[in-house]
């Protein structure tokens, strides 16, 4: 069974309760922040801030539009981070949560490079750092609770449940919304499908969701090369051994010729 979250951006009022709940449940320290051009605060996610409400202000047809996007791990069905992890420290659990085993992680940081959403964040400021990201509150959902952000959301913008049911609900809301929603469930196909999905009443370009992300399964990008290794090695072996046999034969013939000449 794959759990997931459906985030209805039209219901989000930007209170950042989810940000606070996440910090509190996961015992994450506060960060010194500064104000940027908008009200996103902290301005970026980090090893200590796993989710943020991203504020985006834009001019649309002469009107100023402000949007809020809850950012964080998408919990891909086929996670790139899991596929590239050298130590096998990142695992997609049976309930759909993608988690990091800090005892296994060696800190190669390949997951940061592989993740198409830029989710994993590293404790660069520590001598013995850990790779951190949203765990879908793996500890809570294993015990039948909702993730902290979903539990705290006062407007019901963050819904937790089985992915299939949430996907059906998302499509139902879009269908019954009479054009209120953009006809797109973000996360249904993005990066090969994700457990965290979004629906929005404003065009996705006006949110901070990565609209340019591939819909292909990202682990396949490297696997298409990896799966050819046996053929590559076989080819190299045949080439090496064949060439060696040829060289030995040539050397023998040359030696025989020389021997014949002397005799």
């Amino acid at each position: 069974m794959t759990y997931g979250m459906l985030i209805d951006l039209s219901k989000c009022m930007g209170c950042r309760g989810c940000q606070v709940a996440c910090k509190q449940w996961n015992d994450l320290p506060g960060e010194e922040t500064s104000l940027g051009t908008d009200f996103t605060n902290p301005q970026k996610r980090s090893a200590y801030t796993w989710t943020t409400i991203d504020f985006l202000t834009a001019e649309v047809n002469g009107r100023t539009v402000a949007t809020f996007t809850k950012s964080g791990c998408m919990h891909c069905l086929e996670p790139a981070c899991e596929s590239v992890c050298i130590a096998g420290a990142i695992k997609r659990q049976e309930n759909g949560a993608v988690t990091i085993d800090h005892d296994k992680c060696i800190g190669c940081r390949y997951c940061q490079l592989g993740c198409p959403f830029g989710v994993p964040k590293y404790e660069y400021d520590k001598p013995v750092p850990r790779m951190q990201k949203c765990t879908l509150c793996y500890d809570r959902i294993s015990e039948g609770l909702e993730p902290a952000c979903a539990a705290t959301c006062p407007s019901g913008a963050i819904l937790f449940g089985e992915r299939e049911e949430l996907l059906a609900l998302a499509k139902q809301r879009i269908a019954e919304g009479n054009g209120r929603y953009v006809d797109h469930v973000y996360g249904e196909h993005e990066a090969g499908g994700t457990a965290v999905m979004y629906i929005s009443s404003v065009p996705l370009d006006l949110t901070t969701l990565n609209t340019g992300v591939t819909t292909e399964s990202v682990p396949g990008f490297t696997w298409k090369a990896m799966r050819q290794l046996p053929a590559l090695v076989g080819g190299a072996a045949v080439l090496s051994l064949g060439l060696m046999a040829y060289s030995n034969r040539r050397a023998r013939l040359e030696a025989e010729q020389k021997g014949g000449g002397e005799a």
């Binding site: 899991e82 596929s83 590239v84 992890c85 050298i86 130590a87 096998g88 296994k104 190669c108 390949y110 682990p219 490297t222 696997w223 090369a225 990896m226 290794l229």
Partner: peptide, 11 residues
């Protein structure tokens, strides 16, 4: 301790 066969880095 073993790693992840799908990772090019492991290879």
């Amino acid at each position: 301790f073993g790693g992840n066969l799908h990772s090019p880095l492991f290879e």
